[in-house]
């Protein structure tokens, strides 16, 4: 196994593009090393991207936030401005594993791993996050919801590397929230999850995005659920409609972590609860 430490994203992309064997990007390693341990992959090349300066920081500008691909969960939690603007994103990223995992894991890794249960992905999609992708020859920017195409599969071409995630500038009276169900309070994988991002105008929901995790091969944007709460003050009727729309949008599987029935029902419950939290964070009173 070759181990490389490029210092530019382009260099990383070129290394990955050229490799004929099994090539992997190493950022936090919290998925890759598990797969290596379990014998699920035997890389011939590992490209450690943590030496690339362009990937290492969280920056704030008029356009919003840019979160480098190697920024670990703990660093996101420590960033006060990010937490203030996007508490839902930060809490979602913070739910990936223990403090030990937080010291290593990255949102981009969480995204590119392609797990339907990835915690940060529904929150990023609800927020309208974009991924800056660098290839051997060109850069492109793509909405996060276009990255994962199925369990373990992404739309990235061979050699393409995500350099950073961008979050749009935060409008006033906005709030987001992410909730998941896990059997344990920590150290667990989402059985079902929901993210809600919304903006208010005089207490009424003006825009909203509702995204579910672990209920389908990829995260699901539930437009009908958003519609159910837009124009409301999140009254009970709106919340019930939101929950019903979420349950209707589920296409889950039965597996060792949960049942179809359970995921379908609890998706609605979590979406309601997340909506309420996001609403309050946006300054609304219930």
């Amino acid at each position: 196994m070759r181990y490389e430490t490029p210092t530019t994203t382009k260099e990383a992309a070129t290394l990955l593009h050229k490799e004929k064997g099994q090539a992997h990007i190493l950022a936090g390693g919290t998925d890759l090393l598990v797969r290596m341990k379990m014998g699920m992959t035997e890389p011939t090349l590992v490209v450690d991207i943590k030496h690339i300066p362009a990937m290492q920081a969280i920056t704030k500008s008029a356009a919003g936030f840019k979160i480098g691909a190697t920024v670990c969960g703990a660093a996101m939690t420590e960033h006060a401005a990010l937490g203030k603007a996007w508490p839902g994103i930060v809490e979602a990223a913070n739910l990936i594993g223990s403090d030990q995992i937080q010291g290593r894991c990255t949102m981009v890794g969480n995204l590119c791993n392609g797990s339907p249960a990835a915690d940060s992905v529904p929150a990023m999609i609800a927020a309208g996050a974009k991924a800056i992708i660098v290839g051997k020859d060109k850069r492109r920017t793509v909405a996060v919801d276009k990255i994962v195409t199925g369990p373990g599969k992404t739309s990235l071409a061979k050699g393409e590397v995500i350099e950073a995630i961008t979050l749009p500038a935060r409008l006033p009276r906005s709030g987001d929230a992410y909730l998941r169900f896990t059997p344990r309070t920590e150290m667990d994988i989402a059985v079902v999850s929901a993210a809600v991002n919304l903006t208010l105008q005089r207490g009424v929901v003006k825009t909203a995005r509702v995204v579910l995790g672990a209920v389908a091969p990829t995260a699901v944007i539930v437009a009908k659920a958003a519609k159910a709460i837009i124009g409301t003050k999140l009254d009970d009727e709106a919340l019930e409609k939101l929950a019903a729309a979420c349950s209707a949008a589920c296409n889950p599987i039965d597996d060792k972590r949960g049942t179809i029935e359970y995921r379908t029902k609890v998706a609605g419950v979590l979406a309601k609860r997340a909506a309420k939290i996001a609403y309050q964070r946006a300054g609304g009173t219930l």
């Binding site: 059997p183 344990r184 309070t185 920590e186 150290m187 667990d188 994988i189 060792k256 972590r257």
Partner: peptide, 15 residues
């Protein structure tokens, strides 16, 4: 199917 501590869930401190 669950041969690790992730899916064989013994109680953690916060439980």
């Amino acid at each position: 199917q669950n041969t690790g501590f992730l899916d064989y869930r013994i109680p953690v401190c916060s439980d």
